[in-house]
């Protein structure tokens, strides 16, 4: 029994490492794109920013993640865009989460009182500067807990990229299980690995949430 796990361990751990890498990379991508989308949507006077951002968000939220991934993976090559699966996975997860996370940004930015904008305007600060040094730093305090929840949820959703043959945790497990027929032990191990990472992470987010509430 032990020597079996010595054999299965390394591929499962490599898969876990790739899962974590996918999580971090697509989360960072979603953080950046989500902020850009939120800022575009706050620009109501500039329709050429506001409208596309608005439709992009609606569209991404209105279609399934799995279909979006398939589209990137199977359809884009037909129009001459070929990416390696890992990049496709990061892009797909990142785009999907950016749409949801832009709402969190927007709520955080809108939660900052108008008087803060006015005080900064009265000091002759231009809008980008106000966002950078006055509004976003305060908004971040508000959005850290919901962003943490999205991080945990993104970690679990990475399992979906197993469908486009990325050798993350789930895909590695399926390969081993298909060879050995040890479905019970291998998939039990997979569940335990996911939970061992996501449970401490969500406890951490809950702790952050409490701390932010006390701080406010």
């Amino acid at each position: 029994m032990i020597d079996r796990w010595i054999e299965w361990g390394p591929p499962l751990l490599r898969g876990t490492a790739l899962t974590i890498f996918l999580t971090v990379a697509s989360f960072v991508f979603a953080l950046v794109l989500g902020l850009a989308l939120a800022l575009a949507r706050l620009n109501r006077q500039r329709w050429y920013l506001y409208e596309p951002a608005q439709w992009f968000i609606e569209f991404v939220r209105g279609t399934p993640l799995l279909v979006q991934l398939f589209y990137l993976y199977f359809v884009l090559p037909f129009v001459g865009i070929t990416m390696n699966p890992i990049l496709t996975g990061i892009l797909g997860l990142g785009i999907n989460y950016s749409a949801y996370m832009s709402e969190v940004y927007r709520a955080g930015i809108e939660a900052i009182d108008r008087s803060q904008w006015e005080a900064a305007h009265a000091l002759a600060m231009p809008t980008p500067l106000i966002l950078r040094i006055v509004v976003l730093p305060q908004a971040f305090r508000i959005i850290i807990p919901p962003m943490g929840n999205y991080l945990v949820s993104l970690f679990k959703d990475t399992a979906i990229v197993a469908t486009i043959s990325i050798r993350e945790l789930l895909f590695s497990a399926r390969l081993i299980a298909a060879e050995t027929f040890q479905y019970f032990s291998i998939f039990t191990a997979v569940l335990i690995i996911y939970f061992a990472i996501s449970y401490p992470a969500s406890r951490g987010v809950a702790w952050l949430e409490r701390r932010m509430r006390i701080g406010a």
Binding site: S115, Q116, A119, A120, A122, L123, A124, M125, I133, Q138
Partner: peptide, 27 residues
């Protein structure tokens, strides 16, 4: 023209010193 508001509107995430220096430095 500088302006002072009824409800102070200081930047709560900055120290007193940073509140006073933010404008001179960045603007």
């Amino acid at each position: 023209v500088g302006m002072v508001f009824q409800r102070f509107n200081l930047f709560p995430h900055m120290t007193v010193l940073d509140n006073v220096t933010a404008g001179p430095i960045h603007v």
